[in-house]
Design a protein around this nucleic acid. Structure first.
Lengths: 225, 225
DNA sequence: ACGTGTGAATTAGTTCACAGCT
DNA sequence: AGCTGTGAACTAATTCACACGT
């Protein structure tokens, strides 16, 4: 109970985490542009949120700004980087080397952000043994023997439909502490594993709602005239 | 101003849209399982949210339940389907046929949810003319002549890094009303186009935060003992 | 007796506004 | 003068609790 309270106090809202990640990325870009300082106003504009929002978010991680001038970009980049664990590269494993899995394996954004695949697995015997993005695909049954020594802490799951829950359990049992899940099965695991679900079809359907809603609105507006 | 107010009243919170989409999907599954009615309690359990949450969300779309028994699954599926525009299939175009784009083109989840690609474009001359997922890849410069007659209303953008904003503008100018963006550039367009940004690397970095945060917490807890 | 629909209470998240440092 | 850090005010979202229909 007390640990729960402590966690609650310390834990930042997930929407704040999202903005801090984007802010870190922005700092990297600003640094590349040669900028040395930036105000919350400017950060907010480029991030698409208010200046006070930026300041509130940043106070979660410390007093980083200097009154009168703004935030030192490299300070910000360093502190946010530490928060996001940018110290050492993260090791990941892929499970499910279908079309989506293959794309993820070679997605440059992961490497750019310090995350590297160290192994790839699939259940399809035809795929096992083939090489993809510099890695030889191994059978999923090999996960328990390969994973612990690999030092992987993140699992990226892109298995077709069923089996997602099984994969999640096997990964969790073998040292993985975070799972990025692209399978349509929404996973639920113990508190010691964090799961990020990315459901491409759901994002698309949300857009579809806004499309139809916009159409209804037009009709409704017309009726009012 | 009055239209703005009307919109505000009518428009559901985006987090509600997200849950309604998932609820619709759940209804499809429940129907396949042969279930006829389900209570908000059961829906909540399978959706990972509270029963009252489910009820509140559903009142946005109407009074769909029957007191004493629950919700008729097929009623719910039909009404939510109408809300999400499931009447006729949606036509989509892909821009950017790299690894990720190719995976999206053949991603079965889209077709399952009633969205179909009708054209694919890329800027790379080597790719133009090749066939992928039943479609011949065309040059991006052909977008203005191909798009209007195709009837496509959704654009899926998976271009490498820069150029995202340009693609967005061209699509918007040629009848696309919704864009699902996988490019790392966060797009901003007029109010008449809805944009859903899916940034795979950001999802991953959020996980990394939770990984390091969990570690900090362990340390902090240890210190307290 | 059961489960919805909904106002009221609570909790979370955002913006405002300004004191205080540079 | 400019811009942060932050309590206070406000707005949004969630949960509670219960009247009401079946």
């Amino acid at each position: 109970m007390s640990s729960d309270t402590a966690r609650r106090q310390r834990e930042l809202p997930s929407v704040t985490v999202d903005r801090l990640v984007r802010c870190h990325r922005l700092c990297v870009r600003l640094k590349a542009e040669g900028r040395e300082v930036a105000s919350s106003k400017e950060l907010g504009e480029r991030l698409g949120c208010s200046a006070s929002q930026v300041r509130k978010d940043l106070t979660w991680v410390g007093k980083l700004g200097r009154r009168g001038s703004g935030y030192w970009v490299s300070d910000l980049e360093r502190v946010l980087g530490r928060l996001l664990g940018k110290g050492r590269p993260r090791k990941m494993v892929l499970v499910g080397a279908g079309n989506l899995g293959s794309a993820l394996l070679t997605y440059p954004g992961f490497e750019q952000r310090g995350c590297r695949f160290v192994a790839a697995f699939d259940a399809d015997p035809d795929k096992v043994g083939t090489k993809l993005g510099g890695l030889i695909i191994q059978d999923v049954s090999a996960i328990p023997e390969v994973l612990p020594s690999s030092g992987a802490e993140i699992g990226v799951v892109a298995v077709p439909a069923t089996g997602g829950q099984w994969v999640a359990r096997v990964l969790a049992e073998n040292g993985v502490r975070a799972i990025l899940n692209f399978a349509p099965t929404s996973m639920r695991l113990g508190d010691d594993v964090v799961v990020g679900n990315v459901d491409l079809a759901i994002e698309l359907e949300k857009l579809c709602y806004y499309l139809t809603a916009a159409k209804w609105e037009t009709i409704a507006t017309d009726e009012h005239r």
